[in-house]
Every structure is written in structure tokens, then in C-alpha cells.
Design a protein around this nucleic acid. Structure first.
Length: 266
DNA sequence: AATGGGACCTGCGCGC
DNA sequence: TGCGCGCAGGTCCCAT
């Protein structure tokens, strides 16, 4: 579930909490989450190195290290970073120079850790489209104009535009009053402009509220983000639309649960 | 090019 | 009460 606002929240907290600290020890409790290199090499490359820089690219976290390597973290759906942690449910724990633990948790084992010489060469990173904050309205409109696919799956396509997932796609489309099944190229210029604005506004508001805690996401401290209470359609099936009171509908689109108001969104 | 399905996983909530 | 099932969604991969 973590999308751009949740990962950005964790990134900002990591900067305050662990930047400049050294990793003393790496405890691997579940090797599956380590995608590369092999566990022993992974541990060796992370031991006795200092965390020099912390970056976010779309939904991916990157810790640049003093040995020139980078720890690349994709939380996927249930990944969590918790500091200070207790190691209780962690898949991998990092003992830092302040003796505290940075816990990497992941109930469903979809998340991925990589220790890389150059994160820029990672295929997934290279394939990422621009983040909403990297483009202007004119560029966004031009990107949509050639696309015949449905707008909601398109917004979730990380190679098209990056950082938006199922939740914020639904929220932004509601705020722009655009039906999730509309072909992207069918949006009017005004609709495209409004959608672009609502995408950015939704993401910014979510960051201000430290993300949406539905399912598993927590802030670095382990406490939830509180943006979920501001959701207008996501996970509100059958509940009255906050604008017109029509029950919010849920349909499957591209295999994903899609929430929208059938009256407000045309 | 667009779309649909399955795979990866675990735990929860539902219906019987 | 207990069990089996569907579902949750980020990404990849394959088929049409």
C-alpha cells in the first residue's frame, strides 16, 4: 500500500533519525526479502558502513552508503521500516551505532531489499515515468493525449507516471470528477488540468498528514499516518458520497478494487 | 497498444 | 464454534 506520500514520510523521518549513523550489524531473519546479492554478501556489504544519503524515487527508498553502495528498499504492500525497533517481527534488523534497531518488517514477503553498486542501473528505476511534481500541466496533458487506456490503470502505471497507487488514483479521480473507466485521451483539456492539480494536491495533503494507514503502513516511529480519515472514496463502498450522498461504488478495474461516486464522476 | 489473468505471500473477515 | 474461501494491492510476466 505505501505510495509516494507514505514513502516520502518515511524518507523524511529516516533523515532525521538515522542519517550519518553507522550500521554495526545486520540480522537476517527471513532471507527471501533480500533479492540481491546473496545473504552473506548483503550482510558484509552493509556492516560497518555509514548512511550518507537518503533518497526516494517514486515508491522506492534508497540509502546511499559510505562504501559507495546503496541499499534499495521497495516496501510493496506490507513492508514497514520501524525505528527504534525491537526485532520482534522483523524480517531484517539493522543494529545502528546508537545501539538501536532499524527493523524492516514485511508480513507478506513481497517487499524487496537490494544492495547495489549503482541504484541508477536498476531496471525498475530506469523504467520509472516522471513523478507528478517533475512535470507541468502542459506536459501531463500531452502525455494523456496519446493514451487510449483507461485513466485509472494508467495513473497507476509506474512507467507512465510514478508514485501513484490504487488509493491515491481513486482519490484524485474523485476530486477531479473523472470516472475511472474513461479513456485517458477522452478527457477534456479542463479535465486533464484539474486532474493534474488534484493529483498533486492529494499527494501533498497526504504527506502533510504523514500518509494513509490502511492495512499495514506505519510511520517510522510505528504510529499510523492519519490521512485515511480524509479519504473521500477509497474503502468507502456503500457509504454516502461526501458531496452528493449517492452510495460509493466499488468495481474491479485492471484487477484492482476501484472506488468512485457514480453520480459525481463522469 | 491495451487488456486480462496468474504469480508472489499472509492474515483477515466473511459465509456456511 | 470452526473451517474454507475470497480478498487486499505493487509489480512482473505471459497470453491474447
Amino acid at each position: 500500500m505505501p505510495e509516494l506520500p507514505e514513502v516520502e514520510t518515511i524518507k523524511r523521518e529516516l533523515e532525521k533519525a538515522i542519517l550519518g549513523k553507522k550500521i554495526l550489524e545486520v540480522c537476517v531473519h527471513h532471507p527471501k526479502v533480500i533479492r540481491e546479492p546473496k545473504v552473506e554478501k548483503f550482510k558484509k556489504g552493509l556492516t560497518a558502513v555509514t548512511i550518507k544519503n537518503i533518497l526516494r524515487k517514486a515508491k522506492v527508498l534508497i540509502l546511499e552508503l559510505s562504501n559507495g553502495k546503496s541499499l534499495v528498499i521497495h516496501l510493496k504492500m506490507t513492508g514497514q521500516l520501524v525505528y527504534p525497533g525491537n526485532g520482534q517481527k522483523s524480517r531484517v534488523s539493522f543494529r545502528l551505532s546508537d545501539k538501536k534497531l532499524l527493523d524492516f518488517n514485511d508480513q507478506r514477503l513481497f517487499a524487496e531489499l537490494r544492495l547495489l553498486d549503482d541504484w541508477r542501473k536498476l531496471k525498475f528505476i530506469q523504467g520509472l515515468g516522471p513523478e507528478p511534481f517533475d512535470i507541468n500541466a502542459g506536459q501531463f496533458k500531452a502525455m494523456l493525449s496519446q493514451k487510449k487506456s483507461k485513466i485509472k490503470p494508467l495513473l497507476m502505471d509506474q512507467t507512465f507516471i510514478s508514485g501513484i497507487g490504487n488509493l491515491y488514483a481513486a482519490e484524485a479521480l474523485f476530486r477531479a470528477k473523472v470516472h475511472p473507466q474513461r479513456p485517458a485521451s477522452s478527457l477534456s483539456e479542463k479535465e486533464k488540468e484539474l486532474l493534474f492539480k488534484e493529483i498533486k494536491d492529494t499527494l501533498i495533503e497526504a504527506i502533510q498528514h504523514k500518509g494513509s494507514s490502511v492495512d499495514q503502513y506505519v510511520q517510522l516511529s510505528g504510529s499510523p499516518g492519519d490521512y485515511a480519515k480524509y479519504h473521500k472514496v477509497y474503502d468507502r463502498k456503500g457509504k454516502p458520497c461526501l458531496v452528493c450522498k449517492t452510495p460509493v461504488q466499488r468495481i474491479a478495474l485492471g484487477g484492482r478494487g476501484t472506488y468512485f461516486c457514480p453520480k459525481c464522476q463522469k
